[in-house]
Nucleic acid binder design. Sequence first.
DNA 1: CAGCATTGTTGGCGACGTCTACATTGGGAG
DNA 2: CTCCCAATGTAGACGTCGCCAACAATGCTG
Lengths: 199, 199
Amino acid sequence: MSESQSRPYHHGDLRAALLAGAERTLLEKGVAALSLRELAREVGVSHAAPGRHFKDKQALLNALALNGYERLAQALNAADDPALPIEPRLTALARAYLRFAIDHAALLELMYARKHDPDASEQMAAAVERTVGSLAQVIADAQKRGEIVEGDPEFLTLLTGAGLQGIADFTAGGWLTPQAALDGIDALVHHLLHGLRPR
Amino acid sequence: MSESQSRPYHHGDLRAALLAGAERTLLEKGVAALSLRELAREVGVSHAAPGRHFKDKQALLNALALNGYERLAQALNAADDPALPIEPRLTALARAYLRFAIDHAALLELMYARKHDPDASEQMAAAVERTVGSLAQVIADAQKRGEIVEGDPEFLTLLTGAGLQGIADFTAGGWLTPQAALDGIDALVHHLLHGLRPR
DNA sequence: CAGCATTGTTGGCGACGTCTACATTGGGAG
DNA sequence: CTCCCAATGTAGACGTCGCCAACAATGCTG
């Protein structure tokens, strides 16, 4: 790999290259191992170059998170089949979410980590909205069809989401193997819908 | 505060002081703002002194997490009344967990953050076990009394824990206000037990 | 009371994020 | 077409960080 050829001063699309490299590092070594200087080295620019595209390290993390939301929303959307009855439909959505959480654990962590950054939070909020939207739609449709109880749909969405998020969390934390999580997700959805009480 | 008096070289109990200071910082400014040198300054010792008691920054974080598990386990234990029927009993436990999660968000994050540190992980694992034990006991008792469905109790514990963890997560992430979370927790437990399906 | 393990200090190393001043571009206005 | 300027990249510096090694004070124990 003889890439020591005098690079053309201007990189072409440094911003994208930085994001790509950052995501690779994120995937392979986790968020803690992400350094702007190291990133610049990998891409072959000076240590201050990233500053032209991201005012902050946090700004880069925000961009990564935003991009993550896009892809998650897309994955969820693709996994949703509105024609299905509630249980299989919700199960499919849950599997898709879990798969994303497993494959991009560090990224998901990043998406959640931002407590409240005043800047760029509008885009973020919109992205979150779009992501949660899939689940909310499933719940709303199921209610409309009388498949689940009435009541504030937003609350029921929250409730369902909490279950999913918990499982994803446990898996990311290492208490559940990805396999165990994926195997258990059907039962989770089932019990969520039917309750723990004996019938 | 004129504490510039020539301190007695040996601090007395530096280790405890460091842990206390660290927890304060953790509570007030989050884990990212925790620096060993800053901590040493606050306590009034040299920047290398903490190294005598914690070989690593991670070692201090581990100690904090361990201590956190102790307190969480204690809080859960105190909140559990085995005489109660499943729903109020589980609700009480959930409230206690949520309260801890709200009051010590950064600490809880720390407890979960450790993916798998080979060292000191036995103590940690034991602490986790003791913490989860409370919930497991509730589930096991309820099963014994026929209040909830049969099946692998470990799995049902996981499922219930996932719901709680999810809510706690959402609250820590800022999607739910603490008040909303505490208000909603009863309904969460209710729906967990009874399911989302119309009766 | 002597010696030694424990605990704290000082100074230094390399890495990091960020800032400022400077260098090199390429694309539009004239 | 050409000049000029805004965008982009570079070089160097600053302060902070975690960690390490060499040294100093302390107090327990034989």
